[in-house]
């Protein structure tokens, strides 16, 4: 990519050196990656066709009773043949997609709404509000998840205490004891084709809402600033109402910034390991399990290494499909914004 003249100069000097130079510079990264990325990737595929378990840890692949089980692990995962309770692959997959979609569907409108609110001309204390609204972005998600976990504690949690206070205001003195993270019977009995959503899902939505919308507000505020004010003035002169201005000017011009942000949010929520693991660990009864937390459970607690490898291969292909779809959507908005 160096411009033609410079390239000519260097070429004359040493053609061979020039030719191997980029490869020399790639060498360190590729040596490291072949040991800790490519080799493990291949090892993972090999593992996924075996029944590797705890008893094979001592001798590894050389264990005499390590069997090649073919695609049995994959079959077991998809058809529910694993020795694991409460696990159905497609229920977890559908829940995982729903979890990511529903989070983004809440965060993006809320983020845009608050950005627009903060953008109102003449609003007092804007800077203070902006400084406060950005706080959730700077706090590590693992800390947020543990704090919210305690907030949703059945006996001592702030949420039940808050609801008790409200109840007392309305004359009912009984302490509220909602088992936010452990109640198994769902509050609404439908919603997903593969089963209802547990109460813990709603608790996690509340906690993740706190974590999620400020980032969207950040992106939306940046995009709002780049909308020229003349557009609104012209629209106002032509008699457009505020809501017309919002839907006809603000929303279309925010779209090129918000679609990639929403896709980023989707990918993030789809693989939100730390948050889910710290809040519920996938419980109760694996009802809030997402793919990555189950993959982790397979290797960390169940110690079915062969199955875990097969599951990771499946997760990789799911992630690939998600990437191909979202990449297409991003491309689509790119061309939209260029028009």
């Amino acid at each position: 990519m160096v411009s033609a003249t410079a390239q000519m100069k260097i070429k004359k000097r040493s053609n061979l050196k020039r030719a191997i130079f980029p490869y020399l510079y790639l060498l360190p990264a590729f040596i490291v990656m072949s040991v800790i990325t490519f080799y493990p990737l291949i090892y993972q595929v090999i593992l996924s066709f075996t029944n590797f378990e705890t008893k094979h840890l001592m001798l590894g692949m050389a264990s005499p009773d390590l069997e090649n089980v073919g695609i049995q692990n994959y079959k077991d995962i998809v058809t529910g043949g694993l020795p694991v309770q409460n696990f159905e692959f497609f229920r977890v997959l559908v829940y995982n997609i729903w979890w990511a979609v529903s989070n983004v569907a809440v965060h993006v409108p809320a983020g845009v709404f608050i950005a627009v609110l903060l953008n109102v001309k003449g609003l007092w204390f804007k800077r203070i509000y902006r400084a406060i609204y950005i706080l959730p972005v700077v706090i590590p998600p693992i800390v947020v998840a543990t704090v919210w976990r305690n907030i949703f504690d059945e006996q001592y949690g702030a949420m039940n205490q808050f609801l008790t206070m409200l109840a007392t205001l309305f004359g009912d003195g009984d302490p509220v004891r909602i088992r936010w993270l452990f109640e198994y019977s769902p509050p609404i009995s439908w919603l997903l084709p593969t089963g209802a959503l547990p109460l813990a899902y709603y608790a996690m939505m509340i906690a993740n809402f706190w974590l999620g919308w400020p980032f969207m507000t950040l992106v939306a505020t940046g995009a709002l600033q780049s909308i020229p004010g003349d557009l609104y003035e012209a629209a106002a002169i032509d008699g457009a109402s505020n809501s017309q201005q919002f839907w006809r000017i603000t929303v279309p011009l925010l779209r090129p910034a918000m679609v990639p942000a929403a896709i980023y949010g989707f990918t993030l929520s789809f693989n939100l390991f730390n948050f889910v693991y710290f809040m519920t660990g996938g419980g109760p009864a694996r009802s809030t399990e997402i793919l990555v937390t189950f993959a982790y459970d397979l290797v960390r607690n169940l110690r079915l290494y062969g199955v875990a490898a097969a599951f990771a291969v499946i997760v990789f292909f799911v992630a690939l499909v998600v990437f191909l779809i979202t990449n297409r959507m991003t491309r689509a908005t790119e061309s939209y914004s260029e028009i």
């Binding site: 080799y39 090892y43 290797v299």
Partner: peptide, 23 residues
């Protein structure tokens, strides 16, 4: 080749890395 791992969830290679380190 270099960027493919970016597609994977962070714990995608946990199992083989665990076993390789364990050996």
């Amino acid at each position: 080749l270099v960027f493919i791992p970016l597609l994977m969830p962070a714990i995608g290679l946990a199992t083989p890395l665990f076993l390789l380190m364990n050996s």
